[in-house]
């Protein structure tokens, strides 16, 4: 296993996902590019239905059979995922790439103890004894902050609260020391008080164990706290990607700026003032989609927005817009 730090761990180019429907083809994800280096956290943000979850399932090779996946490149540390066999994908899944899902209440099998499920995660990929796997499970349960870990192994998922279950799911994802964790809205289904704890735990552990993470969320507050890199997704496209500080400090795409105006910011938002909203709805992606998908809601849309949209910006911070400055000057933002 080469540990080349100069090459991305995961490099995706031109990922396209089409879903054939009776009414026509749904272009759910339309040619997205991103790179993720070892130990980095990439947050993908966007509204529901923007294609975030599908993108993560596409990397895992867990898409429904009816979804057509195409990509110029989906390179995971030298393995081309688009050409990997089922066997190769199975060997990667849970071992080098782990996934954490949104619903802790239903993502554990109700018929088996959490011990069985944790042990299985390790023994699917390592030929270790049950006792060794058990010891590892206890170690990780303690790491994710579960008290009396050894006695929890015999418990069933229905005996645990949502927060505890999500801790178990995180422990399960870490069993094989993966290099990449894909977390699909891991805190959305939890109580607000628990959300922050679980998120902190996830971020601390990934940093501690030097695991790269793709964190999918629609919560910009979360992104601001944990992301190294941000990808803003709109209607199946990554409309803006870049280092978190740059995207938050100087958002280039009109949609990113719209999103940021929707959340209150300390010291920026006036007390009693109104938060921003983005008028309109996400366009249908069924049939041929041309031009910028955001133009129906963008205050700066022109004729040109219906045509080919150029990729702007430098290598690390890029966005898709007909305006060279993403219409920042039109909005009176500093250049």
């Amino acid at each position: 296993m080469s540990k080349d730090m100069t090459k991305p761990l995961l490099s995706v180019r031109g990922l396209t996902l089409d879903i054939p429907l009776a009414r026509g083809t749904l272009h759910a994800v339309r040619g997205i590019d991103f790179d993720l280096y070892r130990g980095e956290t990439l947050c993908i943000v966007g509204e529901s239905g923007s294609g975030k979850s599908l993108t993560s399932l596409a990397v895992m090779g867990l898409l429904d059979k009816n979804i057509q996946r195409r990509a110029e490149r989906m390179d995971f540390d030298g393995t081309e995922l688009t050409r990997a066999s089922n066997r190769q994908m199975r060997a990667l899944r849970g071992d080098r790439i782990a996934m954490i899902f949104q619903e802790p209440m239903t993502s554990l099998n109700p018929a088996y103890t959490i011990g069985d499920q944790l042990i299985e995660a390790l023994r699917l990929h390592r030929s270790v004894s049950r006792d060794t796997a058990r010891a590892r499970a206890v170690e990780l349960l303690e790491k994710v902050g579960i008290s009396a870990a050894a006695s929890r192994l015999g418990q069933y998922p229905h005996q645990l609260s949502g927060g505890l279950r999500q801790r178990v799911v995180i422990a399960m994802a870490l069993m094989c020391e993966p290099e990449l964790i894909i977390a699909d809205e891991p805190t959305t289904a939890l109580d607000v008080t628990i959300q922050a704890q679980i998120l902190r735990l996830l971020v601390d552990l990934t940093k501690e164990m030097d695991v790269a993470m793709i964190l999918i969320t629609h919560d910009l507050g979360v992104v601001a706290r944990v992301a190294d890199k941000v990808g803003v997704m709109y209607a199946g496209e990554l409309v803006e990607t870049g280092p978190a500080a740059e995207v938050f400090g100087k958002p280039m795409h009109p949609y990113t700026r719209g999103l940021l105006r929707c959340i209150p910011q300390p010291g920026m938002t006036e007390r009693g003032g109104e938060l921003g909203t983005i008028p309109g709805i996400v366009p249908s992606l069924i049939g041929a989609v041309q031009g910028c998908a955001f133009r129906t809601r963008c205050p700066h849309a022109t004729e040109a927005c219906g045509g080919e949209i150029p990729v702007r910006g430098e290598q690390s911070h890029r966005f898709l817009c007909v305006y060279a400055d993403g219409a920042r000057s039109v909005e009176g933002e500093p250049a």
Binding site: L62, A91, R93, D95, F101, T106, S107
Partner: peptide, 9 residues
């Protein structure tokens, strides 16, 4: 949980 099982490999 079936998706979880597949995600585990």
């Amino acid at each position: 949980y079936i998706r979880t099982a597949r995600a585990k490999g």
